[in-house]
Design a protein around this nucleic acid. Structure first.
Length: 279
DNA sequence: ACCACTACCTGAAGGC
DNA sequence: TGCCTTCAGGTAGTGG
């Protein structure tokens, strides 16, 4: 699931029980997620205070008092839950440990922060003080930043033969979009996912930038409101339901023209769109 | 350099 | 009920 808005929602949900608190114990329940954990993974985290929980694109970025940073990516199926053994606002006492609970952070706030990931496409990585991992260095701008604007996108698309769908999913061009929000933004902008990125008109690129920003900020807002419900209910963060115009709606009528929505496969992923409204 | 494709892994859903 | 196929919100690595 997690695209930028979901990761931001997770960040906001975790911050109150993690920021300013000490990792009293880190429990690893297996040796790897997508990548192996380093041997000293728990030792480098335990005893440290998490001074700031940030986000870059789809990465959670936890600043530790040692100067190191803990980067966390949720992959496709990663999720966090908070289990505080009966105390506090975000608390849910499940007692036991569920299948695919791979990492458990025991925080000095009294909460357990549990990372669960059935498919294990997620990963966690420690970054030494002063270093920037290549993964982050190559990322494009945040979609909500001023740096992400029409001239930049136009420059990035210039001469590109690949499809606009693939280009928007490319984290080097703009970082944080995933399959859902790309489909939604293209629909709002009236641009077909099959267009070559390099052939968008200026006005289309401008519309795209505007709608990417809108779609992402609306989703963050929706996440915020669902956060209150979810967190109060069971501490499960990041999998809020949100209604989409085209994503997952193959065959349903387009909300604009009522033509049945299409699903095609592009670079191995589904694209949902309206053949009539998106040209 | 670019681009398309595959691999990674488990679970849910649908057809028969 | 079970067995089979397809699909899932992501990224990294490959080979053309």
């Amino acid at each position: 699931m997690p695209e930028l808005p979901e990761v931001e929602t997770v960040r906001r949900g975790l911050a109150p029980v993690m920021e300013g608190f000490i990792f009293e114990r880190v429990e690893l329940r297996r040796a790897n997620l997508r990548f192996p954990f380093p041997d000293d993974f728990t030792a480098r985290i335990e005893g440290q205070t998490l001074t700031r929980l940030g986000r870059r694109a789809k990465f959670l970025d936890a600043q530790l008092s040692s100067g190191e940073r803990l980067l966390m990516h949720l992959g496709m199926s990663g999720r966090f839950t908070i289990d505080g053994e009966g105390r506090g606002e975000f608390v849910h006492d499940t007692g036991g440990i569920a299948k695919h609970d791979h990492v458990i952070f025991h925080m000095s706030s009294g909460h357990r922060v549990i990372y669960n990931d059935p498919r294990r496409f997620g990963f966690m990585e420690l970054v030494q003080r002063g270093e920037t991992p290549p993964r982050l260095m190559k990322l494009g701008p945040e979609p909500l930043s001023n740096e992400f604007n029409a001239p930049l996108l136009r420059a990035a698309f210039k001469g590109k033969k690949s499809k606009i769908k693939a280009a928007l999913l490319d984290q080097h061009i703009v970082a944080g979009l995933g399959n859902i929000y790309v489909c939604e933004a293209l629909f709002r902008a009236g641009v077909s996912p099959r267009r070559a990125a390099g052939r968008l008109k200026i006005a289309e690129t401008e519309a795209l930038v505007r709608h990417v920003k809108d779609v992402i900020s609306e989703a963050i807002e929706a996440g915020g409101s669902s956060l209150r419900d979810f967190a109060a209910a069971d501490g499960d963060l990041g999998y809020f339901q949100h209604s989409f115009d085209v994503y997952g709606r193959e065959g349903e009528p387009c909300k604009i023209c009522e033509a049945p929505l299409m699903r095609i496969t592009q670079s191995g992923r589904s694209s949902f769109y309206c053949k009539a409204c998106q040209t």
